[in-house]
Amino acid sequence: MSIRIKIPTPLRKFTANKDVVEVEGSNVGEALRALDAAHPGMWAKICDDNGKVRRFINVYAGDDDIRFLEGMATPVDAKTEISIIPAIAGGC
């Protein structure tokens, strides 16, 4: 199934400046692996060594952060857009 992944500006240097990449997959993990296969380096930018989404990156499936869904196992279909969004955070 073809899934659309939106790429944020800072990561577009890995996708030949494409803002949207279409990949195959049935859940978020599969889609991101497919993204990394097409554009090597993306996985490491998004996930740490344990396969967890990095603290300063958010991965959205549709309207919610996958941390609040089923993580990498969150199912996706052609209607679900995946968005990778750098976190904006901080603290005193």
């Binding site: 959205y60 941390r67 968005s83 969004i85 976190a87 904006i88 955070a89 603290g91 005193c92």
Partner: peptide, 22 residues
């Protein structure tokens, strides 16, 4: 949901809803 990765509360930290910027 993940106090280990996010040890601070909103008293001393912030995390913005980035989708609004998008």
């Amino acid at each position: 949901i993940d106090p280990e990765t996010y040890p601070r509360t909103s008293r001393t930290a912030f995390k913005l809803d980035e989708r609004v910027i998008v």
